[in-house]
């Protein structure tokens, strides 16, 4: 069932006007808010040094466990301080940077690996196709968090391995989509026709097929990105992802868990940020899908 052609997803490339159509369709208030939140998150991640009132490791042991300013804490610590007297707001801002950065790199790796493998599978067919689709089925069959935990257990934790692992999550989705699209254009479509002109297949893929795929790939990114954030934060929450003294939203929530009874504000803000970010991307993703792909309307993600 899994390796059949996703002809439903293999939509013919929409016209060039998709950007224009996107621009013309007026987003709702909810989408506006989501976009604004995402812009804020990106700004925080990019300009953490300038936006964070303190460094993420700055301790002031005399001002430990201060509640947020609005709940009777010190006015200079908007979201309070943690058990070492570090500013929670600053830590959340820096943690956003780490989590977003890892998720972006992971998405990029997954999208590239998956798309290339999908194209390779559809181009060569035969045993290459069978082999790649077997890997896709394998990836889909085993919960990735388990695989990631096992690999981290065997190799020990380091940042590069973490990013690579997170990048490998979700490549199967891109591979399936790319394979389906290439199969449909190679069969009777423009990619096949252009090859009969004598153009080298590699050029056909780079010049024609990939640019036409970008819309659908971007939709997949909006599906994949929240899940990647959840994977990284889960791993970090379990203490197996980003390691102290680094920060990540999941790590903050994990650290805050120990102070839930006395100082809930250490962990909860990070959790809220994760929640709002994945929610915003999901909403924007749904909206993008409806705009770009009229055929997918009403179909579940």
């Amino acid at each position: 069932m899994t390796s059949t052609d996703l002809s439903a997803m293999a939509l013919p490339a929409r016209r060039f006007g998709w950007l224009t159509r996107l621009w013309k369709s007026r987003p709702s208030l909810l989408i506006g808010l989501s976009l604004a939140w995402l812009a804020l998150v990106v700004a925080m991640a990019l300009f953490a040094e300038f936006l964070a009132p303190y460094g993420y490791a700055d301790q002031s042991l005399l001002k430990r466990l201060q509640p947020p300013a609005a709940l009777g804490g010190l006015p200079e610590y908007l979201l309070g301080t943690d058990n070492l007297g570090r500013d929670v707001l600053s830590r959340v801002i820096y943690a956003m940077r780490t989590s977003i950065l890892i998720a972006l790199m992971g998405t990029l790796i997954g999208a590239c690996v998956g798309t290339v493998l999908g194209i390779v599978a559809a181009h060569f067919r035969g045993w290459v196709d069978d082999f790649i689709m077997m890997l896709v089925d394998f990836q889909a069959a085993i919960p990735f968090l388990i695989v990631a935990l096992a690999v981290l257990a065997f190799f020990g934790n380091n940042f590069v391995l973490l990013v690579v692992l997170i990048g490998l999550f979700g490549w199967d989705g891109y591979a399936r989509i790319a394979r389906g699209l290439v199969l449909s254009t190679n069969g009777q479509g423009y990619a096949f026709a252009i090859r009969t002109l004598g153009v080298h297949p590699a050029k056909v893929y780079i010049r024609h097929v990939l640019p036409n795929m970008m819309g659908v790939i971007m939709v997949q990114v909006t599906l994949n990105f929240p899940e990647i954030i959840l994977l990284e934060t889960s791993l970090s929450f379990l203490g197996l992802g980003v390691q102290p003294p680094g920060t990540s939203l999941g790590l903050l929530l994990g650290e805050g868990r120990n102070y839930l009874a006395t100082a809930w504000w250490i962990g909860i803000p990070a959790g809220v940020v994760i929640f709002l970010t994945t929610l915003a991307i999901s909403l924007v993703g749904d909206w993008l899908r409806d705009r770009l792909d009229p055929n997918l309307k009403g179909k579940p993600a």
């Binding site: 013919p12 490339a13 929409r14 016209r15 060039f16 009777q188 479509g189 423009y190 096949f192 026709a193 252009i194 009969t196 002109l197 024609h208 640019p211 036409n212």
Partner: peptide, 14 residues
């Protein structure tokens, strides 16, 4: 060279 039935399907839409 070949000229196919459905011209819209055999050109790059972009």
């Amino acid at each position: 060279q070949v000229v196919f039935q459905n011209p819209a399907a055999v050109v790059d839409p972009r």
